[in-house]
Computed example of a mutant assay.
Amino acid sequence: MTPTLPPPREPGRYRIGVVCLGNICRSPMADVVLQERLADAGLDDRVEVDSCGTGGWHLGDPMDHRAAATLAAAGYDPSRHRARQYDATWRASYDLLLAMDEQNLADVGGRDGDVDEGRVRLFRDFDPVQPGAEVPDPYYGGPAGFEEVLRMVERTATEIVAQVGQELARP
């Protein structure tokens, strides 16, 4: 069963942070796809999406060229991304933090449901095909890995955007 989103911290607005290791492959791909899907749904004026990495190796760098090429081939614009690093302020600033794998989840403090109202989760907790699975890191592989990540991200983003729309429609 797909989990429900935590409520927004600010009524009528929603902030989503996507986290991976270096912020050059998985989380920026999810960031770009989520932003596009939110725009298509007419929610981009009320929903903010950012991405970051738990490591600082790539700070300020653009997206990995293979991730960018995969997105561009699918009609997305990856050009604005610059790598950022996670810090503890993200946990209190975002309505929902989505980690790409279990290690990323642990690096941002895990799932403290009682403390954070379920605000820290795996990205694929919302995947309609395989909920709770990790998004594999394609960095050391070939183009097929990036294409697989994009498919996971697209279907999961569709579910997240639908739920954000429902959450923002609540009185």
Rank of each mutant, 00 (worst) to 15 (best):
Met1Lys: 12
Met1Tyr: 11
Met1Asp: 14
Thr2Asp: 11
Thr2Asn: 12
Thr2Gln: 13
Pro3Met: 08
Leu5Gln: 10
Pro7Val: 08
Arg9Phe: 10
Arg9Asn: 07
Gly12Lys: 04
Gly12Trp: 12
Tyr14Cys: 01
Tyr14Trp: 09
Cys20Gly: 09
Cys20Glu: 04
Cys20Leu: 12
Cys20Asn: 02
Leu21Met: 15
Leu21Arg: 11
Gly22Val: 06
Asn23Trp: 07
Asn23His: 10
Ile24Pro: 03
Cys25Ile: 10
Arg26Lys: 11
Pro28Ile: 05
Pro28Lys: 02
Pro28Ser: 12
Asp31Cys: 01
Arg37Pro: 08
Leu38Ala: 02
Ala39His: 13
Ala39Phe: 05
Ala39Gly: 12
Ala39Thr: 13
Asp40Ala: 13
Ala41Cys: 08
Ala41Pro: 08
Leu43His: 07
Asp44Pro: 07
Asp44Trp: 02
Val47Glu: 00
Val47Phe: 00
Asp50Ser: 08
Asp50Arg: 14
Ser51Lys: 04
Gly56Arg: 11
Gly56Phe: 05
His58Asp: 03
His58Arg: 08
His58Leu: 00
Gly60Lys: 00
Asp61Met: 07
Met63Lys: 05
Asp64Thr: 10
His65Met: 14
Arg66Ile: 05
Arg66Ser: 03
Ala67Leu: 10
Ala67His: 06
Ala68Gln: 01
Ala68Phe: 10
Ala69Leu: 05
Thr70Leu: 04
Thr70Lys: 01
Leu71Arg: 06
Ala72Gly: 09
Ala72Lys: 13
Gly75His: 02
Tyr76Leu: 11
Pro78Tyr: 02
Pro78Cys: 02
Arg80Val: 12
Arg80Ser: 13
His81Tyr: 00
His81Asn: 05
Arg82Pro: 06
Arg84Asp: 01
Gln85Ile: 09
Gln85Val: 07
Tyr86Pro: 02
Tyr86Cys: 04
Tyr86Ala: 05
Tyr86Ser: 01
Thr89Leu: 14
Trp90Gln: 01
Trp90Pro: 04
Ala92Gly: 15
Ser93Gln: 14
Ser93Asn: 14
Asp95Lys: 07
Leu98His: 01
Leu98Pro: 02
Asp101Thr: 10
Asp101Tyr: 09
Gln103Val: 14
Asn104Phe: 09
Asn104Cys: 11
Val108Ile: 14
Gly110Asp: 06
Arg111Glu: 11
Asp114Gln: 09
Gly118Cys: 10
Gly118Asn: 10
Val120Trp: 00
Arg121His: 08
Asp125Met: 02
Phe126Ser: 00
Gln130Ala: 15
Gln130Cys: 15
Pro131Tyr: 10
Pro131Asn: 09
Gly132Thr: 03
Glu134Val: 13
Glu134Tyr: 10
Val135Ala: 10
Asp137Leu: 13
Asp137Asn: 11
Asp137Thr: 10
Asp137Ile: 13
Pro138Cys: 08
Pro138Lys: 11
Gly141Trp: 01
Gly141Leu: 03
Phe146Gly: 05
Phe146Asp: 08
Glu147Pro: 08
Glu148Gly: 07
Glu148Ile: 00
Val149Asp: 01
Arg151Asp: 10
Glu154Cys: 03
Ala157Glu: 04
Ile160Phe: 07
Val161Glu: 04
Ala162His: 15
Gln163Cys: 14
Val164Ser: 06
Val164Leu: 08
Gly165Lys: 15
Gly165Arg: 15
Gln166Trp: 12
Gln166Lys: 15
Glu167Arg: 15
Leu168Gly: 14
Ala169Met: 11
Arg170Tyr: 06
Arg170Lys: 15
Pro171Leu: 13
